[in-house]
Computed example of a mutant assay.
Amino acid sequence: MSKYPTSILITGGTQGLGYFCARFIAQKQPNTLVVVASRTDPGNSAATINAELKQSNVKFMKLDLGTLATVRSFATAWKSGAYPPIQALVLNAGLQFPGDISYSSDGIEKTFAINHVGHALLYHLLRENLAADARIVVTASGVHDPAMKSGITGHYTNAADVAQPSADSIEKSYGRGRYATSKIANVLWAYALARRLAASPKTKGQTVTVMDPGLMPGTNLGREAPAVARWLFVTVFPRIIPFLRFLLRTQNVHLPAESGAALARLAVGEDVKGVSGKYFEGVQEIKSSVQSYQVDLQEELWEWTVEFVGSGKEERERFRRGE
């Protein structure tokens, strides 16, 4: 039996935004087990945080969100490990692929597979392990909203075409656009989940929120980008944050530590306890894109996701209800 009463699970918690979120939570709640889950952990993140804080409450678990089979393996390992109830499930991991379109081993567009589909399956498989008042926090991005004029345009029509794009859709899309599209899906799915949590007596104490962390130079989000672009983003841009804010005419440019603290707030902050179905830009609640509020699109994505990730009729029915 675990010595910790509750746990917090953060996907992509080994680098950048997720790392600082995990560190903030571990420091604030030393009696909570904080699990950082990612495909790799090159910086030995859990050991680093534990050493810095002189604690032992952070643990790494391997998680590859890119395939349904590996997500299921992770969920099986979680259940067999008898971990304490999940107080916060932070669905944070994300990748973008700037080059040509690529597909996961399950046959769907890779950005959508990692940023949305893997996370949705993870939620469904771990739902029974969530605490009665658990918080689900989804990391999205302001690029999902064309009104933000980020220069990156998503193209969400329906889930089937995002997952397996037609030739026409491929011609219209590009790597960063596919990333923006996956972030539209994140927001749509979160709003569909919020309705289901509120409607069921079993889950009415649980909440889901969405956060845009802003542009964060210094993260490894664009690790698939060309070498020069990676170098600028990781090495140069973090040193010129005020200039970037001036150049881009927005204050929503932050170091990962700043956005990590904002993400942690949604997971454990007392001032946002009970808040659900809301979208935040850092610490500020704002409106998401006009498209994200279209209930028909939310339900279409939810239904497609259930059908794709569910295994068998009984499991799909549970997933459909948000269980």
Rank of each mutant, 00 (worst) to 15 (best):
N115H: 12
T153M: 09
F24Y: 07
H124L: 14
A22C: 08
G322D: 12
T153F: 06
Q164H: 09
V272L: 06
T70R: 09
R178G: 11
F246G: 10
V34R: 01
G205T: 06
K172E: 15
D161N: 12
L301F: 12
K183H: 11
G269Y: 12
S105K: 14
K278M: 04
A185D: 12
L130D: 01
Q298R: 09
V295W: 10
I49R: 02
S80G: 05
S105G: 07
L188I: 03
T305F: 06
Q29F: 10
Q87I: 01
L301D: 03
T40M: 03
G205K: 14
K202T: 13
A262V: 00
V117H: 06
P85K: 07
Q27E: 11
E307M: 13
F319E: 06
V187N: 05
G151E: 08
S276L: 06
S105H: 08
L33K: 02
S292Y: 05
S292I: 01
P5R: 09
C21W: 02
N50P: 08
S182V: 02
F97A: 15
I25W: 11
V253N: 02
M1H: 04
T157S: 12
V272H: 04
N57G: 05
T209Y: 00
L33Q: 09
A185N: 06
T207V: 01
T153G: 03
R321M: 13
H119K: 14
E270H: 05
A267Y: 08
W78L: 05
G310T: 02
R72N: 05
V236Y: 09
L95I: 15
A93D: 09
L65A: 03
E315A: 09
R265L: 12
P84W: 08
R239A: 06
V162L: 06
R245K: 15
V138L: 08
S73F: 03
L248M: 11
G107F: 07
F308K: 07
R135E: 02
I184V: 15
Q55D: 07
F24R: 15
Q251V: 04
Y293W: 07
P30Y: 11
G43R: 03
Q291Y: 07
H116W: 13
E109C: 13
D212R: 00
Y103W: 14
G218M: 08
S200L: 13
Q294F: 10
A82P: 01
I170N: 12
S289V: 02
R176N: 04
F237W: 13
S259I: 01
P85A: 11
L297T: 00
A82N: 11
P42K: 09
L89V: 00
G66F: 06
G66M: 08
E128C: 13
D168N: 06
E128Y: 08
D168P: 02
F243E: 08
H124E: 15
P238E: 05
E258M: 10
Q294P: 05
R39M: 06
N252K: 05
G282S: 10
S2G: 03
E281M: 11
N50T: 00
Q55Y: 07
A267V: 00
G43Q: 10
L247R: 10
T11A: 10
V268R: 00
Y191C: 02
H155C: 08
A264M: 04
M1A: 10
E224N: 13
D212G: 00
E224C: 07
S292K: 03
L188D: 05
